[in-house]
């Protein structure tokens, strides 16, 4: 795939998503530049998770377009019309979009290393030896070099989430999507996961992070956004977003979580 250096890494244009009668996304438009870290906050049910799931086509949008690295997600432009891509093409596209879930979703029947190398070997068709070497390095990077042979059930929540991050990174994604990565963790385990995410941000990874960890947002985000009822209410640099929000709803929300 060719890349378009000037284009944003992620572009959402007027994205709408309905589940039956319920309209979860009601026209979301925003760009994420290359290497930018965007934090999305908002009350539960505001559509944050759905937005992330639309970006890698786990959910199909009902209206609007999403582009990742200049390519329309899940669709192909043929003579100005959008045609849904075949399953294989969608899968190939997802391979370069990393996603980290609230509940980790590690594969319980595989070891930490098995979780990390499975997709490189079976999706990227990387050689087993090469993948394992890279996988070990990736686990060492998230601080779990000594846990390669542990099964998820033998790891703490924080360790599991770090394996999940390593698993996503092993596919060498262009973008990382984090869906409330620390909200299922015990408070004392949150820090170790945020540390991994911070170092990832410093390395220049393009990231969208749905989180209520406002300390993290202040420290590493280039931009913070508030979503409510399926639309973006406010966005801006974290300093302004937190200390001087313009909208009443942002103020109200921040007063509840800070």
């Amino acid at each position: 795939m060719e890349t378009y250096g000037i284009l944003p890494m992620i572009r959402c244009e007027n994205v709408h998503k309905r589940f039956g009668r319920l309209e979860v996304l009601r026209g979301v438009t925003f760009d994420v530049a290359r290497g930018e870290v965007v934090v999305v906050a908002g009350p539960s049910g505001s559509g944050k998770s759905t937005l992330l799931r639309c970006i890698n086509h786990l959910e199909k949008v009902n209206q609007g377009r999403i582009y990742v690295d200049g390519h329309p997600v899940g669709y192909r432009e043929v003579k100005g019309k959008f045609v849904e891509r075949g399953e294989r093409e969608v899968a190939r596209m997802r391979a370069s979009i990393g996603m980290v879930f609230q509940r980790f979703n590690l594969f319980p029947h595989l070891t930490a290393l098995g979780n990390v190398v499975d997709a490189p070997i079976h999706v990227r068709k990387m050689g087993r030896r090469e993948a394992q070497e890279a996988g070990r390095a990736m686990l060492a990077k998230v601080g779990l070099g000594d846990k390669v042979d542990a099964y998820p059930a033998q790891l703490s929540g924080g360790q599991q989430q770090r394996v999940a991050i390593a698993r996503a990174l092993a596919m060498e994604p262009k973008v990382m999507l984090f869906d409330e990565p620390t909200s299922a963790l015990d408070p004392e385990l949150v820090g170790e996961v945020l540390e991994v995410m911070k170092s990832l941000a410093r390395e220049g990874m393009t990231m969208i992070v749905v989180t209520h960890e406002m300390g993290f947002a202040r420290e590493v985000a280039d931009r913070a956004m508030l979503m409510d009822e399926g639309v973006i209410i406010e966005e801006g640099p974290p300093a302004q977003f937190f200390s001087n929000p313009r909208h009443e709803r942002t103020k109200l929300f921040l007063s509840k979580i800070l």
């Binding site: 799931r53 890698n56 786990l58 399953e87 294989r88 899968a91 190939r92 997802r94 391979a95 370069s96 979009i97 990393g98 996603m99 879930f101 979703n105 590690l106 594969f107 499975d118 997709a119 079976h122 999706v123 990227r124 999940a164 698993r167 996503a168 596919m171």
Partner: peptide, 9 residues
């Protein structure tokens, strides 16, 4: 979801 997000069909 996790499997698909890793590019599996």
């Amino acid at each position: 979801d996790a499997a698909k997000s890793l590019g599996m069909t």
